[in-house]
């Protein structure tokens, strides 16, 4: 089973997205047993608001079909990076699809790209990196938190992605990346990206791209200053993107009828025009949406003069 290679039927070992509603969906690993809180293996049952079920019942079901629960139903969906990002277990703050999309796009990634990422965090972006560089590229991802690195490695294995990713436990500020192949892209999501710039210069190939994700403008300022000081980065730009998810609803606004004169208007009051005429379909923005995620900075590495 793999996030990338699609199979129409659910098999044991798959990760399935159980979709109850827009704001209510969960990733489920289809196994006979799961670890409980005290670390013992118990039968894998899954609890939902519509009752619980034995996870092994999912085996043999078709992706994209209805799955009946004791008091209702849900859809079973094939995992994608986007669904995973929405449902994954948070070990850290994660990067979401709008930012992920811009990062991958701005880094000009494609199959065959060699990418370095620090830190791994919860692996939200890593999944999308792997999907893009597959099947001929590779992701090297590092985290200074040993347990997090181990958990990410385990997840990639379960998601059938391990052939295209190497997870390292490493503090890249002190130790650098130690990736032998020159990288097409380096992505940094860590508190002090400017301290990693010398390591980035050693790891990127000529024309390779760096991207940093920082929530604070002070971080961006320091990073850009470090990049300019190095004298080897060009086309430095900083961007931010926010996505608004609108809902589509019908609304009725009462229209008052001024065409009737007082005599016609039986009650002597203003009369609304027929309701159906006042109905319209519209976009309703969410009551609250993200106001800031992070600043995304891109730069292109061009050391010295090329040999040609």
């Amino acid at each position: 089973m793999s996030f990338i290679e699609r199979n129409p039927i659910i098999k044991e070992g798959d990760t399935v997205i159980l979709f109850l509603s827009v704001n209510n969906h969960y990733p489920i690993e289809v196994t006979k047993y799961k670890k409980n809180k005290s670390g013992n293996y118990v039968e894998n049952k899954f609890q939902t608001i519509y009752g619980h079920f034995d996870v092994m019942e999912l085996v043999g079901k078709k992706y994209g079909t209805k799955f009946h629960l004791p008091r209702g139903w849900a859809y079973v969906l094939h995992p994608t990076c986007e669904l995973w990002t929405k449902t994954l277990p948070h070990r850290t703050q994660i990067i979401y699809t709008p930012d992920i999309s811009l990062i991958i796009f701005g880094l000009d990634l494609a199959p065959g790209s060699i990418v370095i990422e620090a830190g791994t965090g919860s692996g939200s972006l890593s999944h999308a990196f792997i999907r893009t560089v597959y099947p001929t590229g590779h992701l090297y991802t590092f985290d200074f938190h040993e347990k997090r690195a181990d958990q990410a490695r385990e997840e990639f294995q379960k998601h059938g992605l391990n052939s295209w990713v190497t997870v390292g436990h490493r503090d890249v500020i002190s130790d650098g990346f130690d990736v032998e192949k020159p990288a097409d892209a380096v992505f940094l999501d860590l508190p002090k990206p400017w301290e990693v710039v010398p390591h980035v210069q050693r790891s990127l190939k000529r024309g390779g791209k760096l991207c940093t994700f920082s929530p604070c403008i002070e971080q961006v300022q320091k990073t850009v200053e470090a990049l300019k000081r190095s004298g080897e980065f060009v086309m430095i730009k900083t961007q931010e993107v926010l996505q608004r998810s609108n809902s589509i609803q019908y609304r009725i606004l009462t229209s008052l009828d001024f065409s009737l004169d007082e005599a016609e208007s039986a009650s002597g009051k203003l009369v609304p025009i027929k309701k159906e005429q006042c109905k319209f379909r519209t976009l309703i923005p969410p009551p609250q949406s993200a106001g800031h995620t992070g600043y995304i900075t891109f730069a292109t590495f061009v050391p010295g003069v090329s040999s040609s």
Partner: peptide, 16 residues
Amino acid sequence: GINVHLVDNWFRNIQV
């Protein structure tokens, strides 16, 4: 269709 969303974006460049 499921998980259907209608989205638009706000996108800004920053001078640093």
